[in-house]
Design a protein around this nucleic acid. Sequence first.
RNA 1: AGGCUCGUAGCUCAACUUGGUAGAGCAACGGACUCUUAAUCCGUGAGUUGGGGGUUCGAAUCCCCCCGGGCCUACCA
Length: 511
Amino acid sequence: MSSSDLGEQEQRRRTERDALEERGIDPYPYAWDVDAHAAEILDTFDDDKHQPEDGEKGAYQVSIAGRITDLRVMGGSTFFDLRDETGRIQVYVRAQDLPDDYYEEVFTELLDIGDIVGVEGFVFRTGMGEVTVRAAEDFQLLAKSLRPMPVVKETDEETFYEVTDKEFRYRRRYVDLAVNPDVRAVFRRRAELISAMRGFLDDRGYLEVETPILQPVYGGASARPFKTHHNALDMPLYLRIADELYLKRLLVGGLEGVYEIGKDFRNEGLSRFHNPEFTMMECYVAYKDYRWMMDVTEDLVRTVATALHDTPTVELEGHDIDLGGKWPRLSFFEAIEDATGFDLYRADAERVYDVAANELELQEVTPDMDLGALLDEVFSETVEPDLIQPTFITDHPIELSPLAKTHREKEGLVERFELVVAGREIANAFSELNDPQDQRERFEKQARRRAREVDGVKPEDLIDQDYLRALEYGMPPAAGLGVGIDRLTMILTGQGSIRDVILFPLLRPER
RNA sequence: AGGCUCGUAGCUCAACUUGGUAGAGCAACGGACUCUUAAUCCGUGAGUUGGGGGUUCGAAUCCCCCCGGGCCUACCA
């Protein structure tokens, strides 16, 4: 980019940078000793102990650093707002506090909103009542900003000129984070959520593990994968769509409780609930079943929600959602019957299609859909949207669940539950299928169907033979759980789009 | 992928319905001001109106195509 391509403000800031260098001032020095942050100073300042007498230095000395977000120059003195990770604090600079002609020739001439600076001095309360750091000891430029930073003005009640353009915010998340404090808060909470979840699992003695993201055969969910290639081995590889099959291999190996928090990748569309890479927690515990896992899930979600809010209740889209206590447990077919009046348990595909298309007038069903797909459609259209408070949906049809154990009592069903909150699936769990013969048959059935959907793929390529071999060595009975971290974060932070809980969501490239 | 909708100065927005020299606030620049805080006051500059084409004497405005975003639908969790 030649300088003539730059905007007026960008050119001027480059000129200022050159002028700083000519004066022997490094626009990008190496370090600054920070010993205090904005929030902590505002919190601990005590008028009785710290407020200086007229003409004296205060007793509360600090060294802070951050970005200049607003400047109020009044001749020989200036107030500016400095923002660090914890918040905003006002800084007061007087010409005589700085060496030689620094104030006149450098501070007012060569520094701008957006520059990162270090300030050392004392804390005092101004005549207007604001706790402020006076740069009495030292002031240094720490990084010159060459692009104009959006300036957000705010009072206690209102914010002005806030950067709202979604595209701008997602493409330049660094600017979004720099000027929108609420955005930082969301990602801080996301980190707290993951940390609370990890703590919960660690406390129970489960081992955190890492399994392959690059897999020769993908499995563990039904989704289209991203495909890549390893050069040295000259072999195709897939980015995992789930961790499940590797984590269960570890149960074969004798680990009795394992979990992984990591990215899965699904080559599907984008929406406010879907990003091609997303974060999943999966956990498997030997010798337990899905009923036990329901109790654990209640505990886990309540613990995480309470860690973020001090209360298990959150407000989302006008609903108060209570994540405390025990949650209703409703079987898949009961839920459909409650919502529609039709008992579809043991109904065949023809009957389900008839009810869906003619009685319920669902638009998306077609006669060629198989039983699983039809039931899934009926459920997600008639039941799911109305489940606002946390609800366990249990005992799904076997057609929808190739990795779950068949139900110990009810024919045609599996031991599975999904947790639904605010009309969305948040968690999915089963009594894990550990019968290698049953698993092989279900894989083969699924593979035949999937191979038809992808060009040039043979059914046998889609079957994870090594996983079946592992099961043949013997996997203990086990309960497994998967939780979508992004969606849980959306609920617990009140965000309406998955892009608002992912720092760098996938977008089309800029032209 | 389909439908709807949006794209104007560094940022937030107006002008579009009804075609007539593209405006405001903040930011920037020059000046005044040593307790201000959406600082204030005086002055100045800043735009390929996302890109291309068309209609018209004349297009930010009307039409078409393309690019990018948002929402909804579909695949999916």
